[in-house]
Every structure is written in C-alpha cells, then in structure tokens.
Amino acid sequence: MKYEVKQCRILQKQELAKGIFSFVVDAGALAQKAKPGQFANILVPGKTLRRPISICDMDAQKQTLRFVLEIRGEGTQILAGFEPGQDMDLLAPLGNGFDVGDCNRKALFVGGGIGVPPLLHPAKLFGQHATVALGFRSQEAAILIDDFQQAGCNVLIATDDGSLGHHGLVTEYFGQVQPDVIFACGPMPMLKAVSEFAEQKGIPCQVSLEERMACGIGACLGCACKVYRPTEDGGMSETYGHVCKDGPVFDSRKVIF
C-alpha cells in the first residue's frame, strides 16, 4: 500500500514557540515508508475534513514520525490539544516528497514560518553541505533552529521585525550562497522569489506548495494549483495539477506563480 490510515500513539509533545507544537508519534512501518517532504492528512475529531501536516522528521529504526503544527484555526487548535498517550489518526504518507538526490552537493534550504518543518529531515541528510535560510515573523515565532544546527547545517536567520538574525527577508541572503540545488517551503511570495533566483542562476529548485484539501490522495481534485504541462507539439500549456498527488513538491519551473 502506498498510503494507509493508521492510529498512531503520541509519544512526545513539546511547545516549540507560542502556539506551535511538536509531536512525535509511534508510526510503525509507516515511518519506513515515508519520504522527506511527504505529508499526513490528520483526522480532527468532529470535523468533516482532515488537516494536511508535513512530515517534519522520521526515524525508521524507532518507527517514529515527527510533526510540527501551528494553531491557525479550529482544526489545528483541536490537534494542538492532543496529549502523549492519545492516538492521532493519520492518513499517510501522502504526496511525492522531495527528490533529495546526491547529498554531497551543496544544498540551499529556504523556509518561511510554518513552511520550515518539512525541510528538517532532508536538511539533515545533507548535514554540513546544507545552508538553511529561515525566515520568521519574530524571535518568538522562530522554531527548529537548534535541530538544524545539531545536524551540522549552516543556519541563516531573518525576521520581519529584526528581533533575531537579519532584519528583513531570507531572500536577501541569496547573494552569499552558490548552491547546486535548492529546496523551499513557505509563503507563495517567498517561493516565487526563490524560484526566480534559481531560474536566473540556472539552479534546480524544488518548492513545496500548500492548498486546501479534502481527500489528500488525488481523488476529489480539490487541491488544484496552476502548473505547466508539456503539449504534444513540444510546447507548454497551462493546466491545474493537484498538490496532494502531483506535489506537494514541484520543480519550480513547472509552477505558475
């Protein structure tokens, strides 16, 4: 089975920043199947729709998955109230995930806000070959910096209010780096800027997108995003792809921002 529904016991819970929680769950064989950049559609008791949350980290040996979620509305509020010992009902692993490739290349990871979690596991694979540029609203909203540093990554921080790191946008760091490959997740304007930078420099770039979802597996066609697709005559036409199945990770050149 590519994906399954599984009740996963919560082993650890931690508040990383105000309203942002980290959960480690016992996922059994799911943890071996999952790839970095994939996500889970998590059941919220009492809600019609599950909530898509990225796999932040995984441990195939301990058979655990880690999720980091921010309270954004009713659904994430309910999920944030879960405690160790309770089960989370996951539909996972979903989506394509990052195509990590050769981890000895110089990789640039660019994350904004709650787009940071899915970058942790792939960045760990690159270790000291990874430069990780993270943007947050403020110091209070900054998460996972220690985790990236412990993995040996070179971490650069920017905040909107200057309370931590560079006062401004993560993209302002780009002059300093010459990566072989880029991975990015965060708000659309950030992804657009990263994609333009990659395009100019001719660097392959993978971006992870968000869209509102229902099924999470490609059946309902709810999570559309505009992408290019090759035509029979060798050209390109615009169409709607689906974030849950064709993504969430896309080659930045395929995305129509």
């Binding site: 869209e211 509102r212 066609l221 999570c223 559309a224 505009k226 615009e238």
Partner: peptide, 14 residues
C-alpha cells in the same frame, strides 16, 4: 481544466 483554486472550504458539519 476546472476552476481556479481555492476550490474547497470547510463548513459546520460539511
């Protein structure tokens, strides 16, 4: 091709 996104919204019990 269908409609532009967002195509989905949650509602009370629906």
């Amino acid at each position: 091709a269908g409609n532009p996104p967002p195509r989905i919204a949650e509602t009370p019990s629906g």
